[in-house]
Simulated assay, not measured.
Amino acid sequence: MKTFIASIAAVLLLALPGAARAGTVTVKGSDTMVILGQRWAEDFMKKNPNTRLQVTGGGSGTGLAALINGTTDVAMSSRPMKKAEEDKLRGVTKNAPAQISVARDGVTFYVHESNAVSALTPEQLKGIYLGDITNWKDVGGKDAPIVVYSRENSSGTYVFVKDNVLEGEDYVASAQTLPGTAAVVNAVSKEKNGIGYGGSAYAKGIKELKVKKGNEEIEPSEANIKSGKYPLSRDLYFYLRGAPAGDVKAFIDFALSPEGQAIVTKVGYFPVK
Protein backbone atom coordinates (compact mmCIF):
# COMPACT_ATOMS: atom_id res chain seq x y z
CA MET A 1 0.00 0.00 0.00
CA LYS A 2 2.81 2.38 0.85
CA THR A 3 4.45 2.36 -2.52
CA PHE A 4 4.14 5.84 -3.91
CA ILE A 5 7.21 7.93 -3.08
CA ALA A 6 8.12 10.74 -5.40
CA SER A 7 9.79 14.11 -5.42
CA ILE A 8 7.23 16.51 -4.05
CA ALA A 9 9.22 19.65 -4.70
CA ALA A 10 8.42 19.44 -8.40
CA VAL A 11 5.34 20.81 -10.08
CA LEU A 12 3.15 18.03 -11.36
CA LEU A 13 1.42 19.22 -14.51
CA LEU A 14 -1.06 16.58 -15.53
CA ALA A 15 -2.83 16.58 -18.88
CA LEU A 16 -3.82 13.87 -21.30
CA PRO A 17 -2.10 14.08 -24.69
CA GLY A 18 -4.34 15.62 -27.28
CA ALA A 19 -7.14 16.41 -24.84
CA ALA A 20 -9.19 19.52 -25.45
CA ARG A 21 -8.61 22.07 -22.72
CA ALA A 22 -11.99 23.66 -22.29
CA GLY A 23 -11.61 23.84 -18.51
CA THR A 24 -8.71 24.07 -16.10
CA VAL A 25 -8.69 23.29 -12.38
CA THR A 26 -5.64 24.30 -10.34
CA VAL A 27 -4.85 22.37 -7.16
CA LYS A 28 -1.98 23.55 -4.95
CA GLY A 29 -0.51 22.97 -1.51
CA SER A 30 0.33 20.09 0.79
CA ASP A 31 3.34 18.02 -0.22
CA THR A 32 1.85 15.19 1.84
CA MET A 33 -1.16 15.19 -0.49
CA VAL A 34 0.48 15.92 -3.84
CA ILE A 35 0.86 12.28 -4.91
CA LEU A 36 -2.77 11.65 -3.99
CA GLY A 37 -3.80 14.75 -5.92
CA GLN A 38 -1.82 13.52 -8.91
CA ARG A 39 -3.51 10.13 -8.91
CA TRP A 40 -6.97 11.68 -8.56
CA ALA A 41 -6.20 14.07 -11.40
CA GLU A 42 -4.92 11.35 -13.72
CA ASP A 43 -8.00 9.20 -13.30
CA PHE A 44 -10.41 12.13 -13.39
CA MET A 45 -8.99 13.40 -16.69
CA LYS A 46 -9.34 9.97 -18.27
CA LYS A 47 -13.06 10.27 -17.64
CA ASN A 48 -13.23 14.00 -18.39
CA PRO A 49 -10.81 14.70 -21.27
CA ASN A 50 -12.04 18.28 -21.69
CA THR A 51 -10.87 19.23 -18.20
CA ARG A 52 -7.22 19.90 -17.37
CA LEU A 53 -5.91 19.40 -13.84
CA GLN A 54 -2.78 21.22 -12.70
CA VAL A 55 -1.45 19.86 -9.39
CA THR A 56 1.34 21.69 -7.54
CA GLY A 57 3.05 21.01 -4.20
CA GLY A 58 4.92 23.50 -2.05
CA GLY A 59 3.32 22.98 1.34
CA SER A 60 -0.05 23.58 2.97
CA GLY A 61 0.77 27.19 3.81
CA THR A 62 1.74 27.86 0.22
CA GLY A 63 -1.53 26.39 -1.06
CA LEU A 64 -3.65 28.35 1.38
CA ALA A 65 -1.79 31.56 0.51
CA ALA A 66 -2.52 30.88 -3.16
CA LEU A 67 -6.20 30.37 -2.34
CA ILE A 68 -6.27 33.71 -0.54
CA ASN A 69 -4.64 35.59 -3.42
CA GLY A 70 -6.76 33.84 -6.01
CA THR A 71 -4.09 31.87 -7.87
CA THR A 72 -5.51 28.39 -7.18
CA ASP A 73 -8.98 26.88 -7.28
CA VAL A 74 -8.30 24.27 -4.61
CA ALA A 75 -5.83 24.39 -1.73
CA MET A 76 -4.62 21.04 -0.39
CA SER A 77 -3.83 21.17 3.31
CA SER A 78 -2.68 18.57 5.82
CA ARG A 79 -3.78 20.86 8.66
CA PRO A 80 -6.84 22.98 9.40
CA MET A 81 -6.75 26.54 8.12
CA LYS A 82 -5.53 29.01 10.74
CA LYS A 83 -7.83 31.78 11.94
CA ALA A 84 -5.51 34.42 10.50
CA GLU A 85 -5.66 32.72 7.09
CA GLU A 86 -9.44 32.45 7.26
CA ASP A 87 -9.72 36.12 8.21
CA LYS A 88 -7.58 37.12 5.21
CA LEU A 89 -9.71 35.02 2.89
CA ARG A 90 -12.94 36.43 4.30
CA GLY A 91 -11.53 39.91 3.78
CA VAL A 92 -11.12 39.17 0.09
CA THR A 93 -14.17 37.02 -0.68
CA LYS A 94 -16.57 38.17 2.07
CA ASN A 95 -17.43 34.47 2.46
CA ALA A 96 -16.35 31.64 4.73
CA PRO A 97 -14.00 29.13 3.09
CA ALA A 98 -15.27 25.66 2.26
CA GLN A 99 -13.40 22.93 4.14
CA ILE A 100 -13.73 19.39 2.78
CA SER A 101 -12.12 16.33 4.39
CA VAL A 102 -10.94 14.08 1.57
CA ALA A 103 -8.72 11.48 3.33
CA ARG A 104 -7.37 10.34 6.70
CA ASP A 105 -3.70 10.15 7.62
CA GLY A 106 -1.50 9.45 10.60
CA VAL A 107 1.65 11.49 11.10
CA THR A 108 4.36 8.92 11.76
CA PHE A 109 7.87 9.24 13.09
CA TYR A 110 10.52 7.39 11.11
CA VAL A 111 13.82 5.85 12.22
CA HIS A 112 16.40 3.73 10.42
CA GLU A 113 15.43 0.08 9.97
CA SER A 114 18.39 -0.97 12.15
CA ASN A 115 17.30 1.21 15.08
CA ALA A 116 16.40 -0.93 18.12
CA VAL A 117 13.83 1.64 19.30
CA SER A 118 10.30 0.68 18.19
CA ALA A 119 8.10 2.99 20.27
CA LEU A 120 8.36 6.38 21.95
CA THR A 121 6.01 8.28 24.23
CA PRO A 122 4.68 11.70 23.18
CA GLU A 123 6.89 13.19 25.88
CA GLN A 124 9.98 11.51 24.42
CA LEU A 125 9.15 12.70 20.91
CA LYS A 126 8.70 16.20 22.26
CA GLY A 127 12.01 15.99 24.13
CA ILE A 128 13.87 14.89 21.00
CA TYR A 129 12.42 17.65 18.84
CA LEU A 130 12.98 20.33 21.48
CA GLY A 131 16.59 19.22 21.93
CA ASP A 132 16.16 18.02 25.52
CA ILE A 133 16.92 14.40 24.53
CA THR A 134 19.97 14.10 22.31
CA ASN A 135 21.14 10.48 22.63
CA TRP A 136 19.33 7.28 21.66
CA LYS A 137 20.47 5.57 24.88
CA ASP A 138 18.15 7.91 26.81
CA VAL A 139 15.10 6.35 25.11
CA GLY A 140 16.19 2.71 25.08
CA GLY A 141 18.50 2.70 22.08
CA LYS A 142 22.23 2.54 21.57
CA ASP A 143 24.74 5.15 22.71
CA ALA A 144 24.63 7.44 19.67
CA PRO A 145 23.63 11.05 19.00
CA ILE A 146 20.13 11.58 17.60
CA VAL A 147 20.10 13.24 14.18
CA VAL A 148 16.86 15.20 13.89
CA TYR A 149 15.12 15.85 10.57
CA SER A 150 12.17 18.18 10.13
CA ARG A 151 10.06 19.82 7.44
CA GLU A 152 10.06 23.46 6.33
CA ASN A 153 7.75 25.83 8.15
CA SER A 154 5.35 26.15 5.18
CA SER A 155 4.48 22.48 5.66
CA GLY A 156 1.18 21.55 7.26
CA THR A 157 2.87 18.52 8.80
CA TYR A 158 5.48 20.82 10.40
CA VAL A 159 2.64 22.84 11.93
CA PHE A 160 0.76 19.70 13.01
CA VAL A 161 3.80 18.33 14.84
CA LYS A 162 4.56 21.70 16.41
CA ASP A 163 0.98 22.03 17.67
CA ASN A 164 0.31 18.41 18.68
CA VAL A 165 3.72 17.09 19.74
CA LEU A 166 5.76 20.15 20.74
CA GLU A 167 2.68 21.84 22.23
CA GLY A 168 3.48 25.09 20.44
CA GLU A 169 7.18 25.26 21.35
CA ASP A 170 9.90 25.78 18.74
CA TYR A 171 11.87 22.98 17.10
CA VAL A 172 15.48 22.47 18.21
CA ALA A 173 17.75 24.74 16.18
CA SER A 174 19.92 21.81 15.09
CA ALA A 175 17.02 20.07 13.31
CA GLN A 176 17.86 19.61 9.62
CA THR A 177 15.03 21.08 7.55
CA LEU A 178 14.13 19.21 4.36
CA PRO A 179 11.79 20.28 1.53
CA GLY A 180 9.39 17.34 1.55
CA THR A 181 8.41 14.07 3.18
CA ALA A 182 10.17 12.02 0.48
CA ALA A 183 13.40 13.85 1.32
CA VAL A 184 12.92 13.10 5.03
CA VAL A 185 12.35 9.40 4.32
CA ASN A 186 15.43 9.31 2.09
CA ALA A 187 17.58 10.99 4.75
CA VAL A 188 16.44 8.67 7.55
CA SER A 189 16.91 5.59 5.36
CA LYS A 190 20.60 6.54 5.02
CA GLU A 191 21.29 7.90 8.53
CA LYS A 192 21.32 5.12 11.16
CA ASN A 193 20.88 7.62 13.98
CA GLY A 194 18.23 9.73 12.29
CA ILE A 195 14.60 10.47 13.13
CA GLY A 196 12.06 12.23 10.95
CA TYR A 197 8.32 12.48 10.43
CA GLY A 198 5.70 12.62 7.73
CA GLY A 199 2.57 11.05 6.29
CA SER A 200 1.98 7.33 6.57
CA ALA A 201 1.99 6.79 2.79
CA TYR A 202 5.68 7.63 2.54
CA ALA A 203 6.97 5.10 5.06
CA LYS A 204 9.08 2.81 2.86
CA GLY A 205 12.64 1.70 3.57
CA ILE A 206 12.46 2.96 7.16
CA LYS A 207 10.84 1.88 10.43
CA GLU A 208 7.66 3.53 11.67
CA LEU A 209 7.64 4.17 15.40
CA LYS A 210 4.66 3.26 17.52
CA VAL A 211 3.41 5.84 20.00
CA LYS A 212 3.48 4.58 23.58
CA LYS A 213 0.70 5.67 25.92
CA GLY A 214 0.73 4.04 29.33
CA ASN A 215 1.46 0.35 28.79
CA GLU A 216 0.12 0.34 25.24
CA GLU A 217 2.15 0.83 22.08
CA ILE A 218 -0.16 2.16 19.37
CA GLU A 219 0.85 1.57 15.76
CA PRO A 220 -0.25 3.83 12.88
CA SER A 221 -2.46 1.12 11.40
CA GLU A 222 -5.54 1.71 9.27
CA ALA A 223 -7.90 0.78 12.09
CA ASN A 224 -6.13 3.00 14.63
CA ILE A 225 -5.92 5.98 12.27
CA LYS A 226 -9.51 5.74 11.05
CA SER A 227 -10.83 5.41 14.60
CA GLY A 228 -8.57 8.17 15.93
CA LYS A 229 -6.99 5.82 18.48
CA TYR A 230 -3.56 6.57 17.02
CA PRO A 231 -2.70 9.85 18.79
CA LEU A 232 -1.39 11.61 15.67
CA SER A 233 -4.32 10.86 13.36
CA ARG A 234 -5.54 13.73 11.20
CA ASP A 235 -7.76 14.64 8.27
CA LEU A 236 -6.41 15.83 4.92
CA TYR A 237 -8.36 18.73 3.44
CA PHE A 238 -9.38 20.54 0.32
CA TYR A 239 -10.10 24.25 0.87
CA LEU A 240 -12.05 26.45 -1.54
CA ARG A 241 -13.08 30.08 -1.60
CA GLY A 242 -16.72 29.04 -1.47
CA ALA A 243 -19.09 26.24 -2.36
CA PRO A 244 -17.68 24.08 -5.17
CA ALA A 245 -19.20 24.44 -8.63
CA GLY A 246 -18.54 23.36 -12.20
CA ASP A 247 -15.32 21.47 -12.93
CA VAL A 248 -14.08 21.98 -9.36
CA LYS A 249 -17.21 20.33 -7.96
CA ALA A 250 -16.92 17.48 -10.45
CA PHE A 251 -13.32 16.85 -9.38
CA ILE A 252 -14.16 16.92 -5.66
CA ASP A 253 -17.15 14.65 -6.20
CA PHE A 254 -14.81 12.21 -7.93
CA ALA A 255 -12.29 12.36 -5.08
CA LEU A 256 -15.05 11.53 -2.58
CA SER A 257 -16.64 8.84 -4.73
CA PRO A 258 -16.02 5.13 -4.06
CA GLU A 259 -13.52 5.14 -6.95
CA GLY A 260 -11.74 8.22 -5.61
CA GLN A 261 -11.61 6.84 -2.08
CA ALA A 262 -10.19 3.57 -3.43
CA ILE A 263 -7.32 5.65 -4.83
CA VAL A 264 -6.76 7.02 -1.32
CA THR A 265 -6.17 3.46 -0.12
CA LYS A 266 -3.91 2.60 -3.05
CA VAL A 267 -1.72 5.63 -2.39
CA GLY A 268 -1.33 4.66 1.26
CA TYR A 269 -3.77 6.86 3.14
CA PHE A 270 -7.20 6.00 4.51
CA PRO A 271 -10.66 6.84 3.16
CA VAL A 272 -13.08 9.20 4.84
CA LYS A 273 -16.02 7.34 3.31
Rank of each mutant, 00 (worst) to 15 (best):
Y158P: 01
V107A: 09
V34T: 14
A201F: 01
A19I: 01
I5F: 10
N135G: 05
V267N: 05
Q38S: 15
Q176S: 06
T134R: 14
R52N: 11
G246Y: 07
N224K: 06
I128P: 06
S154T: 14
Y171R: 06
E86M: 10
A182R: 02
R90A: 09
G246N: 12
K94N: 13
A255K: 05
T51M: 12
A19T: 06
I8L: 13
A84H: 07
G199F: 00
G180D: 15
S221Q: 07
P179D: 07
L120E: 10
T26I: 14
P17H: 07
D247I: 01
A75K: 05
V92M: 13
N95D: 13
F4G: 01
S155H: 08
G23T: 13
D132W: 04
I35M: 14
P231V: 07
V139A: 02
V267G: 05
T121D: 08
D105Y: 08
E42A: 12
S77H: 07
A96C: 01
A183Q: 12
D73W: 02
P80S: 11
A144N: 08
T157P: 05
P80A: 03
P271A: 13
Q54S: 13
I146V: 11
N50F: 05
A173E: 15
D143Y: 05
G106S: 10
I8K: 15
T32N: 09
S257T: 09
E113W: 04
L36K: 06
T108W: 07
V188Q: 02
A119P: 09
A98C: 14
V161E: 07
P49W: 09
G180R: 01
P97L: 06
G23V: 07
A183R: 09
R79Q: 11
P258M: 11
L166S: 09
I35K: 09
V27N: 07
I146C: 10
A262M: 06
A223P: 00
T121M: 06
G228C: 03
Q54D: 14
Q54F: 10
A262F: 07
Q38E: 14
E259Q: 14
P17D: 10
T71S: 15
A75D: 04
L53V: 15
I133G: 04
T24Q: 14
V117E: 09
Q176E: 14
E208Y: 00
I8N: 12
L125G: 11
H112V: 08
R79I: 14
P145K: 15
L125N: 12
V148S: 11
E85W: 10
V55T: 11
D31V: 15
